[in-house]
Each structure stands twice: as structure tokens, then as C-alpha cells.
């Protein structure tokens, strides 16, 4: 039995022969935040559920390639896989291969209406509607910075973009979201 309180997750990855048990711990610890990260990208619960499973299988298959030394690097690595899998799900939903993923925002907004919780807070609904109208690059940065509160350095590791580019994207995204939320107030 692995004592998770005493042992650091990275030490477990480095030392454990029983990787399945280590992944049980990883799944327990990171499922929720990865699920919401994916759900904010793909919107539909069924897609997010399947994608989450694919993320852990992909992570398990390539755990030997993980070279990180800290828990934040593990989080960044898992987020990177989750983002790739979620974008793949979005690509599958396109009508043809030349269609941009950004053009799916109309479809995602329609899905969002069907996925709303009955007791959803109206301000949160408006915010999410505004976020879904953003281009994918800006949406990813906004989601990870605003909702997950990840530092720009970690987001840079996940997306492969420079910190300055991410800050610019986040700045534009915030402005667009503020403007769109105020517009939705008047609608």
C-alpha cells in the first residue's frame, strides 16, 4: 500500500514498479480539474468524459517520457495532454477538414444551452457564453488563467507559446469577455 501523504507523487512515479497504483492516485487527485478543463473546451459531458479517460490512458502509455521534477510540471504535462485530446475532439466535430475549430463556436454555444444546470447562476452563464465566443487560442489561455488560476509560465509549458504572447492573448480575451458580458446584460 502506497502512503500518499508521506510520499511525493513525483517520487512515486520515479520509484514505483506498480504504475497502475500510482495512476489510481493521479486519477483521484487530478480528475476533477482536468475534467472541467476539458469540459470548458468541448462543452458536452459525454465528450469530456471520453476525453478524460483518453488523457489518463495516453499519460499512462507515455509516462516514461515525463521528465519533470515537480508536481507543477506533472500538472502542466497532464494539462498539455488534456488540451491536445480536447482539441482533437473539437476537430472531429468539424463538418470538413478545412473548417477552422474557431468556426465551431456557434455549435458549442448551442450545446452549452443544452448542458446548463437548472440552478445555474445567470452571471456565470453569461460569462461562459462570452468565453465560448472567443477564438480557441484565447479561450484556452482565458480558461487556464481565469478559472484554473494557472501561472503564465505553466500555461506556456502547456501551449508551447511564449509568456508575452499568452499575456497579450489573455488581455484581448478579457477585454472581449467584458464587452460581451455587458452586451448580454442588455439583451
Amino acid at each position: 500500500m502506497i502512503d500518499t501523504k508521506r510520499a511525493h507523487i513525483i517520487d512515486l512515479i520515479r520509484s514505483s514498479c506498480d504504475m497502475t497504483r500510482v495512476f489510481d492516485i493521479i486519477i483521484e487527485q487530478y480528475s476533477e480539474r482536468l475534467y472541467w478543463h476539458i469540459r470548458r473546451i468541448v462543452v458536452l459531458h459525454e465528450d469530456a468524459q471520453d476525453a478524460l479517460q483518453d488523457v489518463f490512458v495516453a499519460a499512462f502509455s507515455s509516462i516514461e517520457q515525463f521528465r519533470g521534477e515537480t508536481e507543477s510540471s506533472l500538472i502542466a504535462w497532464l494539462y498539455k495532454i488534456a488540451t491536445t485530446v480536447a482539441i482533437k475532439v473539437l476537430r472531429k466535430r468539424r463538418k470538413h477538414i478545412f473548417m477552422s475549430v474557431d468556426a465551431l463556436s456557434g455549435v458549442l454555444l448551442a450545446d452549452f444551452e443544452g448542458e446548463l444546470s437548472p440552478d445555474a447562476d445567470q452571471i456565470a452563464v453569461k460569462l461562459h457564453r462570452a468565453v465560448l465566443e472567443l477564438p480557441v487560442k484565447q479561450r484556452l489561455v482565458f480558461n487556464m488563467r481565469y478559472f484554473d488560476e494557472l501561472p503564465f509560465e505553466t500555461i506556456s509549458q502547456i501551449t508551447g507559446q511564449s509568456v508575452s504572447t499568452l499575456k497579450t492573448n489573455y488581455h484581448y480575451a478579457t477585454r472581449k469577455v467584458k464587452l460581451r458580458v455587458s452586451e448580454l446584460d442588455y439583451e
Binding site: 459531458h45 478524460l52 444546470s117 445555474a120 447562476d121 461562459h128
Partner: peptide, 14 residues
């Protein structure tokens, strides 16, 4: 979070 998620769905996903 405004998204609907049934009770116990997270445990099922895990």
C-alpha cells in the same frame, strides 16, 4: 460552474 453534472458522475468517471 453553470454546466450540469449529475451527482456521482465524477466518481463514475474516476
Amino acid at each position: 460552474m453553470p454546466y450540469h453534472l449529475e451527482q456521482g458522475a465524477m466518481e463514475m468517471m474516476k
